[in-house]
């Protein structure tokens, strides 16, 4: 079978679908002082999963607020800087109105994913961390 680290180079999704690949990518991102980008990407996926579950309305609102405060509120943050102003405004309005929309972080996650695919992911595949591992 194809070794996992070869699959990781096929696409960002292949990398993020493997615990070892995530661990290595996270180490690399932390070296580059942008580990929050990956955590935010997973937080958006986790939020969608929680949203799909029945009940927990209070927890969903609390989580939406926590994600917003941690990653988006501070415009100088590594995540917030890579999300379009209109996308941030939409999320801010949802949080302010306590109107927790299941898809409220989808656009932001798409923009962060595009930024990873364009920048950090290709650089990771050329990084010492990845090359030493392979």
């Amino acid at each position: 079978p194809t070794p996992p680290y070869v699959k990781w180079a096929e696409s960002l999704h292949s990398l993020l679908d493997d615990q070892e690949g995530i661990h290595l990518f996270r180490m690399f991102l932390r070296q580059e002082a942008c580990g929050d980008v990956l955590d935010f990407w997973f937080a958006c996926s986790g939020f969608r999963k929680l949203e799909a579950a029945e009940g927990n309305e209070e927890k969903k609102v609390k989580l939406a607020k926590a994600i917003y405060k941690k990653y988006i509120l501070d415009n100088s943050g590594i995540v917030s800087r890579q999300i379009k102003p209109a996308t941030k405004s939409f999320i801010r309005d949802c949080v302010a109105k306590l109107h927790v929309d299941p898809a409220m972080f989808d656009q932001a996650q798409t923009e962060i994913q595009a930024a990873m695919e364009e920048n950090t992911y290709p650089v990771f595949l050329k990084s010492d961390i990845y090359l030493e591992y392979t």
Binding site: D18, Q19, A43, S45, G46, K62, A66, I67, K69
Partner: peptide, 20 residues
Amino acid sequence: IDSEDDLLQECISSAMPKKK
């Protein structure tokens, strides 16, 4: 703040792939 960070960590972990 702790509870918010805990909630975030739980959310991030829930989205991670299971060990193959």
